[in-house]
Design a protein around this nucleic acid. Structure first.
Lengths: 218, 218
DNA sequence: TTGCATTTCAAACAGTTGTATGAAACTATC
DNA sequence: GATAGTTTCATACAACTGTTTGAAATGCAA
């Protein structure tokens, strides 16, 4: 269908601009200029600006989740249904970090768009975001399998902290770069993933009580 | 001066609204309605909307930094110039977490405003934010004193991860609450601070390199 | 009180936003 | 090739944004 060319041109332009500048700074006129289509095309093909954003978010959300879950499934299958906790956490934070950091040509606008969506929480997205919760629950379940006996509350905090470190690294990479005067290499994506995974696993396996006891001994 | 009443009314209303709804969703008309002053008052007293935001940010930024540094100084003085790393990290994340979480009556709009400022990064703020870097360097220096021999790159990553966990907990407390179905108690501020501090210290002291060094000694 | 500076106010301004309209251009079917 | 349906386009619209204006009100010293 030749008519879909306009649709996809709008979607691509919108995703690129939103990923770069955020939702509040991008107007419909910016998008249609970038896509080389007429202003009215957005309302004709998507109904409204909000519906465009929503469609973009749903599409990319499904894709991202599929990527994470396929990586999770791979490591769990390899371990006969139970993966080491390192691998589970890597499946959780790896795809997004790889998509957002590293050399330019490897970055995906999709991943950076999703980070924007998680930051700005614009109304049309906020309504749909509840799906993510059920998606994260599947990771919580996998973590429980990897760490039998670990209290649920610690599982959730560990999951939360892992995402926190990954997202903040993407979001504020500039500050970290300035603060460390380039010492923290933000192009070394594998190194970053290792740091996030290691810190997450430590927080999960060295329970607070045990950790403080050890710290007091020292 | 009786004339300052309008100024402070505007500042308070703006801070409250920005903290609640974010910058992009609050207009000058919202602010003057909340402050019960005339629309032109903002431009008369502050020059422009951006200058209002900037003044707000500078004021609150100084206050927050002072609070953190006084807590840091207290623990360092108590230890003769060198505080345990737990105390340093606690001084870093404690004030903000206490100001943003916990029961309503204890929350400060100032702390929540600062979180908004760190999230949305609106132009008038982005220009000033570089000051924060030099402020964080003083914490990096304190961490170095607490952990002699710890490589600088690990200090910076530890500092970054600590702020990441604290900020994300504030920003996305709703998701964590839903995900854990209330299991993670977001009113237990001291418990949260302990978790963040513990996880940060673990990441700093049980680094992969440190672990191998310990193993090699053994 | 008089006179001057400061502060408030209603109204209007120019610019931008998302959306709607109706005619034109196109596409495919008969 | 005429026709019906789809898609594009320039243009207009109403709503909202931050800012400005000039007159009215207020405060305060002489």
């Amino acid at each position: 269908m030749a008519t879909d060319r306009t649709r996809t041109a709008i979607l691509n332009a919108a995703e690129r601009l939103y990923a770069e500048r955020g939702f509040s700074d991008v107007t419909l006129r910016d998008i249609v200029a970038e896509a080389n289509v007429n202003l009215a095309a957005v309302n004709y093909h998507f109904g409204s600006k909000d519906e465009l954003i929503a469609e973009l978010f749903v599409t990319r959300s499904i894709a991202t989740n599929r990527e994470r879950l396929s990586e999770l499934k791979a490591v769990e299958d390899a371990g006969g249904g139970r993966a080491p906790i390192e691998s589970v956490m890597r499946a959780l934070v790896g795809p997004t970090l790889r998509g957002c950091l590293g050399p330019d040509r490897q970055r995906s606008t999709a991943a950076r768009f999703m980070i924007r969506a998680s930051i700005e929480a614009v109304p049309p997205i906020r309504k749909i975001r509840n799906r993510e919760i059920s998606h994260l629950r599947r990771f919580a379940a996998a973590m429980r399998r990897s760490l039998p006996g670990c209290p649920d509350v610690d599982i959730y905090w560990g999951l939360h902290f892992a995402l926190a470190m990954a997202h903040q690294t993407i979001r504020d990479s500039e500050r970290l770069d300035k603060l460390s005067e380039g010492l923290c290499d933000l192009n070394d994506v594998d190194g970053i993933i290792n740091r996030v995974v290691t810190a997450s696993v430590l927080a999960l396996t060295q329970r607070p009580s045990a950790a403080t006891a050890r710290a007091q001994r020292a």
